[in-house]
Amino acid sequence: MARAGLTAERLTQAAADLADEVGFENVTVSALARHFGVKDASLYSHIRNAHDLRVRLAVLALAELADRVAAAIGGRSGKDALVAFAGAYRAYAREHPGRYTATQMALDPDTAATSAAGRHAELTRAILRGYDLWEPDQTDAVRLLHSTFHGYVSLERAGAFHSHPRGVEASWTRVLDALDSVLRAWPAL
């Protein structure tokens, strides 16, 4: 019999909180069971295994990030939308490091198609329309932006920028200025 009060949603939310505390890679069924004061077996009526738990966590994190980005870019276009998108993305990664790591998990095609993963690309495409970019350039620009945001956030989280006297905020602003310039002057095929 399932322990009263435990649901897949509650377990996923607790796993997300745990990921932010101890790191996504340390989220296990055992750690989650300890959090609830139950045996591991009590969780298996709600989740299939550790992989299922991590997928649920990734789907939750993708939805949270997409919601945050959508709220940030609403009513904006061009550079304002780009800066708002980037700021929301970076803030989420800073505030929720374990969940952010979960957003990078490779999902099977069916899960990816029904999750917020597609919303991220669509939100990016929405800001790119302000730069008058269309396919196939949009796909290339989506990849450029996501690579840049993820790379910057990952290096910043790893402490890679802290040994240089130039502040990370100043560099972030310049990166966004450069991206705006690149997008406005996107080369024709």
Rank of each mutant, 00 (worst) to 15 (best):
50 A>T: 15
123 L>F: 02
44 Y>L: 11
62 L>N: 00
180 D>R: 04
7 T>I: 09
133 L>V: 05
103 T>E: 09
176 L>Q: 03
35 H>D: 09
27 V>F: 01
31 A>G: 14
180 D>K: 05
148 T>G: 06
124 T>P: 02
131 Y>E: 01
9 E>H: 00
145 L>P: 04
189 L>K: 13
144 L>F: 03
15 A>N: 03
152 Y>R: 04
158 A>I: 08
84 A>F: 00
52 D>V: 07
2 A>V: 11
92 Y>D: 01
97 P>Q: 04
180 D>M: 05
15 A>C: 07
145 L>C: 09
2 A>P: 15
49 N>T: 09
168 V>Q: 12
2 A>N: 10
171 S>M: 15
83 V>M: 00
53 L>E: 08
160 A>I: 11
187 P>Q: 01
186 W>Y: 13
26 N>Q: 03
165 P>C: 03
10 R>I: 13
105 M>T: 15
24 F>M: 06
143 R>V: 05
162 H>I: 09
131 Y>C: 10
47 I>D: 06
167 G>C: 08
103 T>Y: 11
138 Q>G: 05
39 K>Y: 02
56 R>E: 11
184 R>C: 14
143 R>K: 13
183 L>N: 02
95 E>G: 06
44 Y>V: 11
65 L>K: 10
113 A>T: 10
114 T>C: 04
146 H>M: 10
95 E>S: 13
60 L>S: 00
148 T>Q: 03
177 D>Q: 09
54 R>M: 01
174 R>A: 14
19 A>E: 02
64 E>G: 03
99 R>M: 13
64 E>Q: 14
101 T>Q: 15
189 L>H: 12
16 A>W: 04
40 D>N: 15
138 Q>N: 07
121 A>Y: 14
9 E>T: 11
35 H>Q: 09
83 V>F: 01
20 D>A: 10
21 E>F: 03
84 A>W: 03
49 N>M: 10
31 A>Y: 03
